[in-house]
Write a protein that binds this DNA or RNA. Structure first.
Lengths: 146, 146
DNA sequence: ATGATAATGATAATCACTATCATGATAGCA
DNA sequence: TGCTATCATGATAGTGATTATCATTATCAT
């Protein structure tokens, strides 16, 4: 289950951040979209519920949410400007469609063994990872020529 | 084994690209460095063998090498401006040090099973992936407080 | 050697993102 | 509910990386 906008609003307050209409608008956009969104796209969508909101505020809010680990970046091959809501306690990763740029999460990720191997090969004290798969989503796959 | 600058020069020619001294200088820099390098860093190093080279040319050459899959981007948590040489037939991934930004390759990566699971969960026709581990390299690990 | 073609570099433009700062809004508290 | 310290916002302008344009120059097949 992913966070709701209201749930996150509470988390913001717990951390001593004020809950402004702008932030709430952004949260609603993020929570309502399963896909990754660029700052501009978020701004665009947020304007429909809060027309005066500035792009700057979107950047600031994303930075805040990112610090609180409520939102995470998506690294697509053609750029790294996407953000999407983070599943809370759950480890997750992305599958990015090369056709339509759609991003989908997946849950299972059993990298503990691999992490151990990498530790042995490189000596690094590993504390995190980024794993993304690329391919064609079912729709684009069906539309693509055989 | 990684490509040598000369080997890549041949590949460039095979694809109908001209081999200029600038490109050769950039290739030598890339081949000589195991680490990831930003466009500026590459420019800086290339200037020692070809002082008149412009940063623009570095960008263009990186873009070309990237199209030919001879070079790949490194996605670090704090930005995505790094490039490094690609091991040819060999599947490889990066371990990025959060302390000193050093990047090391590792070889073993057994994601076939996981790829299958992801296919089942998402229906995506997967054709590639990005996997990077983050942590502290042995040096930074030793320097860090316990 | 020559010429078609592609690459370079200078300049300026664009694009994403950030710093600054005065104004306005929020939330804790009486 | 009203007051006030503090935080957030938005306008403006600024930064820094990357890209477009275009005249000049270099490469390579002939």
């Amino acid at each position: 289950m992913r966070f709701t906008a209201n749930r996150i609003a509470g988390i913001l307050r717990e951390h001593g951040h004020k809950l402004t209409p702008q932030r709430h608008a952004i949260l609603r956009v993020m929570a309502a979209t399963h896909d990754h969104l660029t700052p501009e796209a978020i701004h665009e969508k947020a304007r429909s519920s809060k027309p005066e909101i500035g792009l700057i505020t979107v950047y600031r809010t994303l930075s805040l949410l990112s610090d609180l680990k409520l939102v995470c970046r998506v690294h697509a091959p053609n750029g790294c400007r996407g953000y999407m809501m983070r599943r809370p306690a759950e480890h997750h990763h992305h599958v990015v469609c090369s056709g339509c740029d759609r991003v989908v999460d997946f849950r299972g990720c059993h990298l503990a063994d691999l992490e151990q191997e990498v530790l042995e090969e490189t000596g690094f004290d590993i504390n995190g990872h980024l794993l993304e798969f690329y391919g064609l989503c079912p729709d684009c796959s069906a539309a693509a020529p055989a």
